[in-house]
């Protein structure tokens, strides 16, 4: 029973990280109709930024996070303006290939700037370890939960009260109407990329604090796509719930099935992709996604 509960709790923490990455994806998709495969690379860059500010520049945690957010805002804005803007109205394939290419470039830049090295900053972030009886709750779960709640609350406030947030929601609804009332859609696009970048970078700092950062850390973005699909690609609440579901299922499945498999494991790596196939066959629009009706 302890084993099971421990798996569930760890899975929960994992799910929160997936959810954070998925939220970034959903924001961009909602506001600018672009599928951003490079979200995992934002996370990786975030991890490296965390290392740079926390270890190299030896800044306090709050300053590091602020500095990383500042970099993320600039990065998001530049990416949108330079690469995605020319593709407005292009096919899905073009946009996906563009973001994949962006991901490759970001990986190259990370190798160029940080030497592709494994950087760890164990102990630089505050570690909160909560112990309840037999099992302990991992710090990334707690930090993940706290940061996710903060991010979601901030986004909720933004979308509900801020003028720009309202404009973003309106843009998600109908671009042409929005333009006709005098809202500049292009700047909405830029802002959505900035927000997604910030969310990605923040989750990167958390992840980096837990297990260190390396270029191949960006693979976590591919796994988060399963979360996006399960939650329904345009629902933030769905992303959070799906993140938890997948995190827990993945961990429990790996815990019990790995020893039974002929070559002894690796199920956790492929589990999200099996979920993708199942979701696509039985519920293509996810748990909370909008079903779109096509006309000829």
């Amino acid at each position: 029973m302890t084993f099971f509960l421990q798996l569930v709790i760890t899975g929960f923490g994992l799910g929160m990280v997936y959810a954070l990455i998925a939220i970034g994806f959903v924001i961009i998709l909602k506001c600018s109709k672009a599928f951003n495969i490079a979200q995992g690379q934002f996370v990786m860059i975030g991890g490296y930024l965390g290392f740079t500010f926390l270890v190299t520049f030896n800044l306090p945690v709050w300053a590091s996070i602020l500095a990383a957010i500042a970099v993320a805002v600039v990065m998001g804005g530049l990416i949108e303006r330079l690469t995605l803007r020319p593709l407005v109205g292009q096919s899905v394939l073009a946009i996906i290939m563009m973001t994949i290419a962006l991901g490759t470039i970001l990986e190259g830049v990370a190798t160029l700037v940080w030497g592709g090295e494994y950087k760890a900053y164990h102990g630089a972030l505050p570690t909160i370890t909560l112990k309840v009886g037999e099992f302990s709750i991992p710090p990334e779960t707690l930090i993940g939960i706290i940061v996710s709640i903060l991010v979601v609350v901030a986004l909720m406030a933004l979308f509900r009260y801020a003028k720009i947030g309202l404009a973003m929601r309106a843009t998600a609804e109908d671009e042409q109407v929005v333009q006709s009332v005098g809202i500049k859609v292009t700047s909405i696009y830029t802002i959505s990329w900035m927000i997604a970048c910030v969310v990605g970078v923040v989750s990167g700092i958390i992840l980096g604090g837990v297990s260190g950062v390396m270029v191949s850390m960006s693979e976590v973005g591919m796994k988060a796509l399963a979360v996006v699909l399960l939650g329904g690609i345009d629902s933030i609440g769905g992303a959070i719930l799906a993140g938890i579901i997948i995190g827990v299922l993945e961990n429990v499945a790996a815990g019990y099935l790995d020893p039974l498999l002929p070559s002894g494991g690796g199920l956790a790596n492929v589990f999200p992709f099996i979920i993708i196939i199942i979701v696509l066959i039985f519920k293509p629009h996810g748990l909370f996604g909008l079903k779109r009706i096509e006309r000829i």
Partner: peptide, 23 residues
């Protein structure tokens, strides 16, 4: 007892594998 495999570069801590060892 058996084998547990950790990804070459894990993106998340290998809690499951360690718990199995404990178990």
């Amino acid at each position: 007892v058996g084998s547990q495999f950790v990804p070459m570069v894990p993106t998340t801590p290998p809690t499951t594998q360690l718990l199995w060892l404990k178990d």
